[in-house]
Design a protein around this nucleic acid. Structure first.
Length: 380
RNA sequence: GGGGGUGUGGCAGAGCGGACUAAUGCACCAGACUGUAAAUCUGGCGGGAGGAAUCCCUUCGGUGGUUCAAAUCCAUCCGCCCCCA
């Protein structure tokens, strides 16, 4: 892969029925087929799942977090190892988040200034200042293929004036990120994505999108959604932005989502997704299946020797029954957390394959309808 | 034979005259989780009625007392434990 292709997005097909698109995103470690789902490995590892399992699940790209990797083990260790993909032995494409989400999630452990954000480490309370430039330098050191601008992932609800200020702050930071990204030593083959903010306000979202386009990024993310707002606001924010975005750049909806959200947002024209849901919920016992979701800890599975999902061929489904997994939960054997996380990741990968195939065959809406006919079969 | 201790909800274990259907933990039953402070968190957990505040009935080994009031005090019976002989 030469630098000129890095971060480039090519459309294979645009749906005749909706805004959905089939495409591929070039990165220095491979080409991603989109729409793509990225499992989240905050600390450079998908919790409880070895990389070989992920490869088998046909995971295309792993997301990780620059703030946490910076705290531990620190960028020097990662650099010495030859970058994160060498360090964690993943070898395939990775994306790092900038630390912007921690402005949202760490609530009281942060202070936002015009110049950047001061975090208090949740590990030991030490203070760390992240300027936009520093976030980019850290992400360069970590060495993921796609890196993100530092943004302020805003709260919900947020009144219009505050949302405007927040969006403008993210915009100023985005400009500084781009400058730093283009700065010397830019020998790494990385792509930089800008993040569109503006809370639930369509005009702010549009302003943000236009301004991000002016800066010119390799791809455009939509951030600050699914932070507690009603779904209709999320969809309308996406709808406000998508028509503005160029066809030849990848669109990444950050932090989404559920199978429902993914179908709907692909339909609206999104190419990339990430979400902790399949792994976090898997660790908490929730299983995603083609016939709906359920929690394996319920005693009704005690005597159920069937597999989690009759339509799944993951390692978990090939080898273990619901009864056995329920038993592992009851005896607190942590293996179930790995097995369920793996299954849920398989489910998401299968979901994305189904979506891509349907786009290839021009049957997207039909496939979506069929998916939900079965997905709601358990009577959610 | 002598002396001492103990018995509390499915289990462990607080409480030792009124605020006790009885702390807490486990177990059990639900629910939540969307760029991971998450191997997490929240609720319920004697029975019945109600949407709910709430109301009725039944509970701290058994029985009988004392008291306005008893898981808590007394008597007695039953069970278990420890020490001495």
């Amino acid at each position: 892969m030469t630098k000129q292709y890095c971060g480039k997005f090519y459309i294979d097909k645009i749906s005749s029925e909706c805004n959905a698109r089939l495409g591929c995103l070039h990165t220095s470690r491979g080409i991603l087929k989109t729409p793509v789902f990225m499992p989240v490995g905050t600390y450079g590892t998908i919790k409880g799942i070895p990389q070989c399992w992920l490869r088998k699940a046909k995971v295309q790209i792993m997301l990780s977090n620059s703030y946490y990797l910076y705290l531990n083990p620190g960028t020097e260790i990662i650099k010495k190892a030859g970058g994160i993909q060498n360090f964690n032995s993943w070898k395939k494409p990775m994306l790092t988040d900038s630390g912007g989400f921690q402005i949202f999630s760490l609530k009281k452990l942060k202070k936002v200034y015009d110049n950047g954000v001061e975090f208090k480490s949740p590990i030991n309370g030490t203070k760390h200042f992240f300027s936009p430039e520093k976030s980019i330098i850290i992400q360069k050191d970590i060495g993921a293929d796609i890196i993100m601008c530092l943004d302020e992932c805003s709260m919900y609800p947020l009144d219009y004036t505050l949302a405007k200020h927040s969006m403008e702050l993210s915009l100023r930071w985005a400009k500084r990120c781009k400058i730093e990204f283009n700065n010397k030593n830019n020998s790494t083959l990385q792509a930089l994505f800008g993040i569109i903010q503006g809370s639930i306000y369509k005009d702010l979202r549009k302003q943000s999108a236009y301004a991000m386009l002016d800066i010119d990024f390799d791809g455009y993310a939509i951030g600050g959604l699914s932070v507690g707002e009603p779904r209709c606001h999320m969809y309308s924010a996406i709808n406000a932005v998508v028509p503005i975005l160029p066809n030849n750049k990848a669109r990444y909806l950050m932090g989404i989502g559920t199978p429902e959200d993914i179908w709907n947002c692909v339909e609206l024209g999104i190419d990339m997704f990430d979400c902790v849901l399949p792994t976090r919920n898997g660790r908490n016992g929730q299983v995603l299946t083609s016939l709906g979701k359920f929690n394996i800890k319920h005693s009704k599975f005690k005597n159920d020797y069937s597999k989690l999902d009759p339509n799944c061929n993951c390692l978990t489904c090939m080898e273990y029954s619901k009864a056995y997994l329920n038993y592992l939960v009851k005896v607190h054997e942590s293996l179930y957390r790995s097995l369920l996380s793996l299954h849920n990741i398989y489910f998401m990968m299968n979901l994305m394959t189904t979506i891509r195939n349907s786009l290839q065959n021009n049957t997207f809406l039909q496939a979506k309808k069929k998916f939900f006919r079965y997905y709601y079969a358990l009577g959610e």
